[in-house]
Each structure stands twice: as C-alpha cells, then as structure tokens.
C-alpha cells in the first residue's frame, strides 16, 4: 500500500513544481527580465553612478579642471593613472604653476574601485557610462584623457 502512496506522493510533488513553471510558461511575457541587448542600444541607459570607465569632462572652451596634483595617481592601487606634468606660466594668474601634459589612463589595469574619483579635489575626473570596451589590441585601452590643446579652467585651485 505504501508503495502506491509513495508513487502518488512523488507525482504530486513533481506536479506542484510543474505548476510553478507552467504558470511562468503561460505568463512569460509579463515577467521577462532579459533585454535584447545589442538591439536596444539607443534606449539603453545605465544608472548615473555606473562605473564604466574614468573620463575627464571638458567644457565648450576645451578646458578641464585637472590641476595635476597627482592625488589620483597616489590613490590608485594598480598604477592605472599616470600623469605626465610640466611647469609653466599660468596665463591668468601669471604664476609659475604645475600643469598636466598628458593624463594617461590604462583602462586595462583599472579595477573600478573609484578611489581616484573619490580623492580628486577639483572633480576633474568622473565616471563614464560606456561599458563596451572589447578591442582587438590591448594598447587601445590606454587612453589620454585630456584632449589635445586643452587647458586648465581658470579659477580652479586645488
């Protein structure tokens, strides 16, 4: 007798489980969480704080806010940021000041810890939303963040 009740109970538990999957099978469109990723690029928006890559925003006069204080370079655990700097006369104040020549960012070494952006005193670097970083050659992942010919925004002091 217990032989048959075992079979019956076994089938019952299987049907209970299948009722769940059956429910989702019939309502599959309502609960779908998958995205049609490469096709939805136009509408895909990442969250504001999403850590894609480090970027340096420039304004319309091709000016940035990086004073070359190198705090980000010291804060970085992996040597991702490399600042090549120089000294020069600041055309607004007339003082001999440190200025960046190249802000080199090795994306291939970056662990997205966010310490550089956290320590930046002038908010010169920010998180960018781009996450499509697959390239054929890893040298393409080494970027110079300050645009050619750009200079420090007047009035920015660290």
């Amino acid at each position: 007798m217990s032989y048959f009740s075992n079979i019956f109970n076994g089938i019952k538990t299987l049907l209970t489980g299948m009722s769940i999957t059956g429910k989702y099978f019939l309502n599959s469109r309502k609960g779908a969480i998958t995205q049609q990723y490469p096709d939805n690029r136009d509408t895909l928006k990442m969250f504001d704080r999403f850590r894609g890559e480090v970027i340096m925003p420039h304004d319309e006069n091709n000016e940035h806010a990086c004073t070359g204080c190198q705090k980000c370079e010291i804060a970085c655990p992996n040597g991702t940021i490399e600042i090549i700097w120089d000294r020069g006369i600041d055309e607004y104040t007339g003082k001999n000041k440190k200025k960046i020549d190249k802000f080199v960012y090795h994306l291939s070494m970056c662990t997205m810890c966010g310490l550089c952006i956290d320590v930046c005193p002038t908010d010169a670097i920010k998180w960018g939303q781009n996450f499509e970083n697959s390239v054929y050659d890893r040298t393409a992942l080494t970027r110079v963040l300050n645009k050619p010919g750009s200079k420090l925004r007047p009035g920015v002091e660290d």
Partner: peptide, 11 residues
C-alpha cells in the same frame, strides 16, 4: 548598481 555603481565588486 544604482547606489554603489557596480553590481558585484562594489567597494
């Protein structure tokens, strides 16, 4: 992702 900026290694 919305609050910390990352999904797995949040720091």
């Amino acid at each position: 992702e919305e609050t910390c900026g990352a999904r797995l290694t949040m720091n």
